[in-house]
Each structure stands twice: as C-alpha cells, then as structure tokens.
Design a protein around this nucleic acid. Structure first.
Lengths: 138, 138
DNA sequence: TTGCGTGCAAAGGTTTTGCATGGCA
DNA sequence: TGCCATGCAAAACCTTTGCACGCAA
C-alpha cells in the first residue's frame, strides 16, 4: 500500500470526488466516465483506469469483480485505517458495504490460522451476498 | 436453476467430463479448449461458452471471477460435497487457491444470516491472506 | 526544467452474436 | 422432420499500452 505521492490534477480530483460522493455504492468506469461527461469535463478512459489503479494501490478505493457482471466495480473506502478489526459484508445487488462488528465471528480467523495454517488478512477479506433489504425486494 | 433439458452431444459430454475430472480445481475456457485440442477433439470456443452457460444455469457448475486475473473460472460442483460450506482461501503471496471444507465454519454463514440479516454467497466469497508455506518462507 | 499525467488511438484479451450447417430426438 | 447445437468469423466489450503533448512542482 503505497502513499499517494502523485501530482494534483483536475482529473484526479474530480474522479476522487465522484467516488467519495458515491461511497455508499459501487461504481464502474463507465459510470465515472458518463458522470464526468455530463458535468462538462471530459476525461479519457485510460486516465480513469490509471487513476483508479493508483487509488486501489494506495488503499483509498477497493476493486471488486462480480460473477455475473462483466467489468470491475470500484468503491471508496471510508476510514480505511480502522477496518482491520471487523468483517465486511458487501451486497452484490445494491452495492452497500456493511461493517460488521461481531464477537461471534472474531474467532473465525483464529480458527483458520490454527487449524488450517492460513493467516487471513481481514482488511482485504469481504463476504459477498445479499443484504436484508435486497432479499426482501423480490 | 433450470433443469438440464438439452440434447446429448459429443461436445457437451467431453466438456462436462473434463470439468468432473478436474472438480478439485478451477479451470477456464482456455484450459478446456487446450485439453480438447490435445485429445484430438476440436470444439469451438463459442460452444464451450454456451455449454458452460447452461451448466452454470442448471447449477452443475459454478463461475468465479478473481481480482488479479482476467477471465472467468469454472468449477464442477459435486452435489454431495456441496452440503458443507465451501470457503476459498487465496494466498496473496503465491496466488494459490485453497478450497476449505470445514465443519467449524459451516455455522458462520448461518450466524450472519440469522443475526445480521445478510445472506452470504459462498461461491463469491474469498478469504485473502497468507498460506502456511509462504508464511514459513520468510 | 523535469518527469509524471493526459488524451487518443491502437492493441490485447475475453465473451457474445449472427448465420448457415450439422445432428439429436 | 423440427429444433437445438455447433463452427466460424465478426462484433462487442473491457482494459492496457505506446506515444506525443500538457502541466504540476
């Protein structure tokens, strides 16, 4: 996870601005591009990809791949420093990210380490599924 | 999840045969195509995709997308083994993918559903971390 | 001035689609 | 015979890369 040491450019700012404004849902390159176009600011697709790569690299943004869909999704991660102590649940329908603090689950990573020799990195691990609201709307 | 109601063709059989034989690992379209070629049976790429779509649709095969990689992965799902929860552990160092069948963890998804109203999709959920071998080699 | 950032277009790879033909039931 | 399946190629997509120019520091 590198530090953000790049230049401050117009493109960089508006891309990050859009991600912050939409941090409650996931977005993709097309949506970002369309938003920037509608706002009168045209930004090349390659630039969006390159900026997103840097943001992912620096830990500010998370990148997701979903099975049915083609193309990656991106989402700004608020308070990314504190997210090492709990689990993340991500709804694949509405894109909502849930920060789950739960004592019952705190032993899971311990178990995997002790019984399976695998050290889980909670900051990178996400449970995918369907949230209560989306499950009810069908 | 529809029933498998299609015709029985040579291509369908050998594709499914390959998936069954390799049900302990993930595979992809390229590997299937290469295997069929090496076996003297040439099958068009489009046919492989179309057959895989049907298999996924009928629940016989699962489709995965992983972050680093480009292209989808497929895996045959044995009905009987499938009774247990099937977690994936992916080593971020060596890239190895571990299929974890574990009774202790089978209650985790239940708990999340009952106590947090969130339905986890195990086929999409991956634990990232460091495997025993990579942890030892440092 | 230096070197990273940007835009454009082209390339690379994966997956889908159109259409004529082939093959199961 | 009636349809679905197949093969081939083209198309549709998503993403990356090369290169010249622009711009921040």
């Amino acid at each position: 996870m590198k530090k953000d040491s790049g230049y401050n450019t117009r493109q960089k700012e508006i891309i990050l601005d859009y991600l912050v404004k939409n941090k409650d849902k996931h977005t993709n390159v097309q949506e970002i591009s369309a938003y920037l176009l509608s706002g009168g600011s045209s930004v090349g697709t390659a630039t969006i990809y390159r900026q997103l790569d840097k943001l992912v690299e620096s830990g500010v943004v998370r990148k997701y791949n979903f099975d049915g869909k083609t193309g990656a999704c991106y989402q700004y991660i608020d308070e990314h420093e504190h997210c090492k102590e709990h689990f993340h649940l991500k709804c694949t329908v509405c894109g909502k990210l849930i920060h789950l603090e739960c004592d019952h689950l705190s032993g899971v990573n311990e178990h995997i380490k002790n019984h399976h020799g695998f050290t889980v990195d909670p900051s990178q691990t996400v449970f995918y599924g369907i949230c209560a609201e989306c499950a009810g709307n069908k």
